[in-house]
Amino acid sequence: MGLDYEFMWKAFPDILSYLPVTLKLTAGALILSVPFALLFAMIQIRKVPLLRKIVSIYLSLIRGTPIILQIFVIYNLMPYLLQKYADARGMNLNIYDLNGMWYAYIALSLSATAFLTEAFRASIETVDKGQFEAACMVGMSRGQAYRRIIFPQAAGVAMPVITNVVVDTIKATSLAFAMAVTEVTGRAKILGGENLRYFEAYLDIFLVYVIVIGITEILLKKLEKYCVRYRVA
């Protein structure tokens, strides 16, 4: 069907050189979301009065809206509001100097946080409550009980969902073009537009994503095997 193989061959290394941006976005978003997800999960498990309601509204809102809309809000609206706020407070601050990557991290971590919260909460709740009590009985502090007894067991249960979140985050980085961040998809869009070879450019990134996510899944499967070692069958 008249594919321009030469273009595909030439564009591939060019596109691949933007893979670090994709991986950076993924890693940044995940690193940012883990502590919040853990906090939110604990709020839900401990049933902290008001905060629990706020967390569930957050979870429902993120689950209920398209990720692209969340990106629009963070990228188009947040800097504007922050700037207005800074100006109103008389702060000499230019929000627009902030690197666009930061908005991408925040936007992508919104949904990662929500889904990780669910994963953490559900997995911690699978560990029998008696174990926590037993740990406290033998003189461990709450923190120690969670770190040494609960988390290692919960990790095995949470791993499949965590794998999904990681894969979804990698896939969501393909929307970073809406935030003017050039990663793999963004680069393909540019190259495809310059040469009017969209289809070939997208075939290239199709391959890139299949390979990258395929490898990620294999690695996470290995990690999952390691994590379930504490699991009582």
Binding site: F199, F206, Y209
Partner: peptide
């Protein structure tokens, strides 16, 4: 597994540009 690995926009573009071609 391939479908699991492809971001929606990528497949959308592939179909949108590729199918007519």
């Amino acid at each position: 597994s391939v479908m699991r690995c492809v971001p929606s926009v990528v497949l959308l573009f592939l179909i949108y540009y590729g199918l007519p071609m």
